[in-house]
């Protein structure tokens, strides 16, 4: 479904702040793959997601989505096929617009936005049902401004929005990191449900090793712009945190213990 071929990206090239964020990275996701991404700060996890989303052009390499070369497409054109949830709950929704207006914007992701009415009666009923499904009591607040919702509610709505129009790929960029543990667990559970119900292909960054092991069918670990570990299927299911730390030390050539604070273990 998603294929990255020898993708490289360097920030601030030729300056003292030069940072090789992705170096010759290749990755292939089969349809239905739910991949969790872990790695320390600066390992290139977010850079990987941003490269796929098209936040900026990559320096070299190719990115294919569903067989189509999207390397040269700007962010808003790739959005036709990509749903995204950001780390900051404020980033995924328009706070001054109504809940139903936000959902309506998401329903038209990748569609031509013409002079038809922005929210139709028919879709309003769908929204009500979908929101009732979340179990957050949002189905009665369709016309409330999204800015009035809590961070967890907003993140749940953003998830809903990302999947409202079936994306070929769902990108979750530490989307639970800013939430309290209980809310984070709920949003993660919702992510699982949405991914499996709609058979989505997904990439999820997390700082939490347990979450990375528990969710998805495949796990990749990044370090200095490389993928240093790629475990799928049964092997991933049996993975333990201890093992993950050891495998990191083997592959990265230095022990994680020295900077394991970067990866929280629980």
């Amino acid at each position: 479904m998603l294929e990255l071929q020898h993708v490289s990206k360097t920030f601030n090239p030729g300056t003292i702040n030069e940072k090789k964020a992705l170096s010759d990275l290749s990755l292939h996701l089969a349809p239905g793959d739910f991949v969790t991404v872990i790695g320390g700060n600066g390992a290139g996890k977010s850079t990987l997601l941003n490269a796929v989303a098209g936040v900026w052009p990559v320096d070299s390499g190719r990115i294919l989505l569903g067989g189509e070369d999207i390397t040269a497409l700007p962010e808003h054109r790739r959005a036709v096929h990509i749903g995204r949830v950001f780390q900051d709950p404020m980033m995924g929704t328009a706070p001054n617009m109504q809940l139903e207006e936000n959902l309506a914007l998401a329903l038209r992701r990748g569609q031509k936005r013409g002079l038809k009415w922005g929210v139709t009666k028919l879709e309003r009923e769908d929204y009500r049902a979908l929101l009732a499904d979340l179990g957050l009591g949002l189905e009665d607040r369709l016309t409330a401004k999204v800015g009035l919702l809590s961070g967890g509610q907003r993140q749940a709505v953003t998830l809903l929005m990302a999947a409202l129009r079936q994306p070929k790929l769902l990108l979750l960029d530490e989307h639970t990191a800013a939430l309290d543990p209980a809310t984070a667990a709920k949003v993660l559970e919702l992510s699982d449900r949405i991914v499996s119900e709609a058979h989505l292909t997904a990439l999820m960054i997390t700082h939490n090793m347990s979450d990375a092991i528990r969710h998805g069918n495949r796990l990749i670990m990044m370090d200095e712009g490389h993928i240093i570990l790629d475990i799928a299927g049964e092997a991933k299911k049996k993975l333990t945190k201890r093992e993950l730390i050891d495998r990191f030390a083997q592959s990265a050539g230095y022990a994680l213990e020295t900077d394991q604070t970067l990866l929280s273990k629980d």
């Binding site: 950001f86 980033m91 929704t93 914007l105 998401a106 038209r108 990748g110 936005r113």
Partner: peptide, 12 residues
């Protein structure tokens, strides 16, 4: 209201 979200939703 939110340019980053708008881009992510395919708005030019």
């Amino acid at each position: 209201n939110n340019p980053a979200m708008s881009r992510a939703l395919g708005i030019n």
